[in-house]
């Protein structure tokens, strides 16, 4: 049990705990905020795993952009601020079962496979290393990704336009 294991374990516990709160809290805004905590903990996990660039990108994009976007969504759909009872659907009991089943299956599988595998964290995933890899081996997917982002942008604007084609709405 190395120090890295301990730290990773603690961060994992934080991540799981806050994730649980995300899916169970009755306050929509609080859910988004607990999501921030989860993302932060996951970023910490990346750091322990010496994936530095990924950790910072996680913070930047997930916490910085995605959570903000989700909060905007909460605001624009007039979600109730403050605790509310209407937060879980009728599917809840089945969802618990499915969740537990998934967890059991995956954890069993994983523990059986990797119960004696150890990794050495010697080579950090620095920006220069990853940047070289991305711009050499993964440059095509990168360009496609950028086109995809453009498409998403255009699509989002098109979807949220006011009604199309009637007079005076342009």
């Amino acid at each position: 049990m190395t120090a890295q294991d301990v730290v990773f374990g603690l961060l994992g516990v934080i991540a799981l705990g806050s994730a649980l709160l995300v899916v169970t809290t009755r306050n929509v805004v609080r859910a988004a905020l607990w999501l921030v905590v989860t993302f932060g903990a996951v970023a910490g996990c990346y750091l322990v795993l010496t994936a530095e660039l990924v950790a910072w990108v996680q913070v930047l994009i997930y916490i910085g952009a995605i959570v903000v976007l989700l909060l905007f969504g909460v605001m624009l759909t007039r979600a109730p601020i403050g605790p509310t009872d209407q937060v879980d659907s009728g599917n809840r009991r089945v969802a618990v079962l499915v969740g537990l089943a998934t967890a059991a299956m995956l954890v069993t599988l994983v523990l059986q496979a990797f119960h004696s595998t150890y990794v050495t964290l010697d080579q950090p995933g620095t920006a220069s290393l990853l940047g070289a890899a991305v711009f050499r081996s993964w440059v095509l997917p990168l360009e496609v990704l950028s086109v995809l982002l453009l498409t998403a942008l255009v699509g989002a604007i098109t979807l949220t336009r006011p009604t199309v084609g009637t007079a005076g709405s342009r």
Partner: peptide, 14 residues
């Protein structure tokens, strides 16, 4: 798994 539970149990789309 927690994410699975959340997808299947939450009422609000966000």
């Amino acid at each position: 798994s927690i994410g699975v539970y959340g997808v299947l149990a939450r009422r609000n789309a966000v």
